[in-house]
Computed example of a mutant assay.
Amino acid sequence: MHAIHHIAIIGSDYAQSRHFYVDILGFPVLNEVYRAERDSWKCDLAVGGAQIELFSFPNPPSRPSRPEACGLRHLAFAVSDLDAEVARLESHGVACEPVRVDEYTDRRFTFFADPDGLPLELYEDQVRAI
């Protein structure tokens, strides 16, 4: 194993999730198909060298999604300018937690949520000069 190929996310409202990941977060669409036999959309989004597979299914069961629940804790995106990204998200009405500093790496980060409450993180991939 040498890289993450994709992360699959099931949204409860496909149009809302697609708008969030494409129009607000800015991930380009690689491919999008409607699978009639499953009454399901699948949209492949480019995220650096990996992909997000965004799915819809009729009545998906809910899942605990708080960061400390068992299972996948959160999905983190690397950013060069955390303050600019936070400002951009907030201009779209996306609430971000207060910025924190990782005590081990000295990198700044914050959490926010997708339309279904999935915890997402912005992680600044460079130490800021003061």
Results as ranks from 00 to 15, higher is better:
V33D: 09
P115H: 07
S91T: 07
E53H: 13
K42D: 04
E37D: 09
D125R: 06
G26R: 01
Q16W: 00
L45M: 06
P61H: 09
D83L: 12
L120W: 05
F20L: 03
I130V: 14
R38E: 09
P115V: 11
P28W: 02
N59A: 11
R108I: 08
E103F: 14
L30M: 02
G117M: 07
L54M: 06
D23K: 03
D114N: 08
D44N: 08
G48H: 05
A78D: 13
A76F: 14
P58V: 03
V79H: 06
I9A: 01
V86S: 07
E121D: 00
E68I: 13
R38V: 01
F55G: 06
C96Q: 09
V86C: 11
D23I: 00
E121T: 10
Y104Q: 15
V86G: 03
E103A: 15
I10T: 14
S56P: 07
L54P: 03
A36C: 05
A69K: 10
R88V: 05
H5D: 10
E124I: 03
T110W: 04
G11N: 04
D23L: 00
D83A: 14
D44H: 11
H92K: 08
A36Y: 02
L72F: 14
I4N: 03
P58C: 01
F112W: 11
A76V: 14
Y104A: 15
R100P: 05
E37R: 08
Y21S: 01
S40D: 03
A95V: 15
V101C: 13
V47P: 05
C70I: 15
S56W: 05
R128I: 11
E97R: 14
D83G: 12
D83P: 11
L118V: 12
L118Y: 07
A84D: 12
I52H: 06
P28E: 00
A46R: 11
G48R: 11
K42Y: 08
G11W: 02
A46M: 02
E32W: 01
L122R: 02
R107M: 13
I10D: 00
S62N: 07
R73P: 02
E32S: 05
N59K: 10
F109A: 06
C43S: 10
S62C: 03
G26D: 05
L45E: 01
G11P: 00
F111D: 04
L89Q: 04
V86T: 09
A113E: 12
D125A: 09
P61G: 07
P115D: 08
L89K: 07
H2S: 06
S65Q: 12
A78Y: 14
D114T: 07
A69Q: 13
L120R: 02
L30Y: 07
V127Q: 10
V86M: 09
G117N: 05
P98Q: 11
S17H: 01
C43E: 01
P61R: 04
F55N: 06
R18N: 01
A78F: 13
E32G: 02
T105L: 13
Y104S: 14
D44T: 04
H19M: 01
R35V: 09
A36V: 00
F112Q: 09
P119L: 02
P115A: 08
Y34S: 01
P61T: 08
F112V: 07
R63V: 09
G48I: 12
Q126N: 14
F57V: 04
R35Q: 06
F55S: 03
H2K: 06
P119M: 10
A95D: 13
A50S: 15
